[in-house]
Design a protein around this nucleic acid. Structure first.
Lengths: 152, 152
DNA sequence: ACTCTCCGTGGACGCCATCGACCTGAGCCT
DNA sequence: AGGCTCAGGTCGATGGCGTCCACGGAGAGT
């Protein structure tokens, strides 16, 4: 992970569809060199994947909610995790410090679907209680912060 | 937005670096047709961009926190938003229902930087109070849920 | 029925991805 | 010091891809 790797990561976080040739121009290496570096970043787990950023309302996921989960005393967190992982509506899952062990970000199409999700969560073994906060709007999300040197 | 557009969105949410030729094969159209459809999805604001998904610890952003903000009565939310937008550590920002008007997801390198961020937030005009919860680990994040027809 | 429009296909051409061969400099052993 | 080894780069070649263009068929409106 030298400065060039950081620049590559920055560039790809900004636009994952840049060609290797373009990346090469930006960092001042040849295309094959960039190709090899990016390949290593991928296989070493630095770059986990490439994703299109899509407006959720446009694909019928207009309701965003953040749900905190309090675990039963004696519940097994690993089992719970597996139960959560199965629910596709849960886009993100954090294990938290504090009373609420998990914090979930969920996206659904309607409030009715959110209700169903919450019911299902409360029925999940190990869940003592849930607390749901609804996002009225997403101002921005997953904005990449630059880590490399400033782009000259 | 027909079924093919949804499939394209699904495919690109799964892997934003798929070539147009590959997308074309998957949806059963020609490459130019896919190229045009994707271009329209981009310019109509359905596809907002393409981002590499990077392991945050690998780039020195090992501390994740969720911060709720309570606004002063009479504060201007738009001004606050601009103040928040300027802080690069804030990766996501939701406008919430409930006592806390905003919910932020922030990533920093160290607890000390988190402390500085919280101090800055509390000094921001319009902020009455903040509440910070620290994520001990990110189980997963921004998992795309499939919206198209099941991939046959 | 004619035509307009939309949306697709197929062909062409230049650029890109990717492979292999070779080069160079750093570090280390003798 | 000399030379081995290896990591990591460049260069050149080739096949596939991105992208532009001209053309064609289906459906709606008159």
């Amino acid at each position: 992970m030298d400065a060039i790797d950081l620049s590559l990561v920055d560039l790809l976080r900004g636009n994952a569809r840049l060609s290797y040739a373009e990346l090469a121009r930006q960092v001042g290496l040849s295309a094959p060199a960039v190709h090899e570096r990016v390949g290593k970043l991928e296989s070493s787990g630095v770059v986990l994947g490439y994703r299109a950023d899509v407006a959720p309302e446009a694909i019928g996921l207009g309701v965003t909610a953040l749900i905190g989960i309090v675990e039963d005393s004696g519940a097994d967190s690993d089992d719970m995790l597996e139960s959560l992982r199965v629910l596709p509506e849960i886009e993100s899952c954090y294990f938290m410090a504090g009373v609420e062990s998990f914090l979930l970000k969920a996206r659904v199409g309607t409030i009715a679907e959110l209700e169903q999700l919450i019911v299902r969560l409360n029925r999940t073994p190990g869940v003592a209680s849930t607390r749901t906060a609804i996002a009225l709007s997403t101002k921005w999300e997953n904005r990449p912060q630059s880590v490399g040197p400033q782009p000259a």
